[in-house]
């Protein structure tokens, strides 16, 4: 566990007055406050550091303790006292892990560093940097889906902060899209409403299809003979293989539209995008003498 230089975080020196600290905190907070940096985890992390620095330095008792032990804090009485508390806290950390697929976990909670916890014990007072509102905090979570999972609207049960909630994931949802589950964020205070839960969906690039909205794209190898003479081909779509007719004298790079074989259109029932396939014509290799002779004949015809 590393020592944290709270003065450095706020950009002030040890002689700073209460007013200096307040000003420095506000200046930094104007840059990194989560409300000014939506969807910016880096800024949120930075804000937590600033908040923690302010929590310690703006509280005369905490500041005194911090200044007294400084970098030698581990030899201080405080460390001994808190280490037992710390241990029990860590044991609790292995609690409910939510469900699989939840990547980022939940944001919004005011987390203090291990350094802070070991020096000052549990969480800080709410009166310090930010005061909680009537409305509960919004929570953020991430959920991973495959392209295949988004072909149909489906229900999913998620465990959020120990509570099971059932959500509907509409077909055709796209990578990076966020769904708001109203009222499933943190609880409100003094009868205020609960915050909302925001679930961001991550859909990794599919190995088979490229996607643009509801349309899908794929390149398919086509042998020279079928391209020249025409024929049939089995083509993979998200919902299974379909038979496609190949016109005679098909040129390399020809694009064919398979209508309605793309992804469902988000929140539009019975509407689907298209699947576009591009032919990549394969020139035969390792020709036999006989085959070479036939091509020569062809070239002279």
């Amino acid at each position: 566990m590393a020592f944290i230089d709270y003065y450095k975080i706020l950009g002030i020196d040890k002689a700073a007055t209460d007013k200096d600290i307040k000003n420095a905190y506000r200046k930094q907070a104007r840059k990194y406050h989560p409300d000014l940096n939506p969807n910016n985890t880096e800024a949120n992390k930075k804000f937590q550091e600033i908040n923690e620095a302010n929590e310690v330095l703006s509280d005369p008792e905490k500041r005194k303790k911090y200044d007294k032990y400084g970098e030698n804090w581990q030899h201080g009485e405080a460390y001994e006292q808190q280490s037992r508390q710390q241990q029990s806290r860590q044991n609790n950390n292995g609690g409910p892990g939510g469900f699989e697929g939840f990547g980022g976990g939940f944001g919004g909670g005011e987390d203090f560093s291990d350094f802070f916890q070991s020096m000052f014990g549990g969480a800080g007072s709410a009166g310090g940097g930010r005061r909680t509102g009537y409305r509960g905090q919004d929570l953020n979570a991430e959920f991973q889906l495959n392209l295949q999972d988004t072909l149909q609207t489906h229900k999913q049960t998620l465990t959020v902060n120990g509570k099971n909630i059932r959500i509907t994931i509409p077909a055709g949802i796209e990578n990076g899209q966020t769904i708001k589950i109203a009222g499933h964020g943190g609880a409100g205070t003094n009868g205020g409403p609960a915050g909302d839960l925001f679930i961001k969906f991550n859909i990794p690039a599919d190995a088979r299809f490229k996607r643009d909205g509801a349309n899908l794209y794929n390149t398919i190898k086509l042998d020279l003979y079928t391209a020249v003479l025409g024929g049939e081909l089995m083509v993979e779509t998200p919902t299974g293989k379909v038979k496609v007719k190949v016109k005679p004298e098909t040129q390399n790079g020809t694009k064919v539209k398979l209508k309605g074989k793309g992804m469902p259109v988000y929140k539009k029932e019975n509407e689907s995008g298209d699947l576009f396939i591009t032919y990549d014509i394969q020139i035969p290799v390792n020709l036999t003498d006989k085959q070479k002779q036939l091509f020569e004949e062809l070239s002279k015809s």
Binding site: R26, A29, R30, H33, D35, L36, R130, G133, Y134, R135, D138, G192, P193, G195
Partner: peptide, 16 residues
């Protein structure tokens, strides 16, 4: 209630 979220965000800015 519907204005609370906006308003509480604005208050945290005001405090800065």
């Amino acid at each position: 209630e519907t204005e609370l979220q906006k308003l509480e965000k604005m208050i945290s800015l005001h405090q800065l």
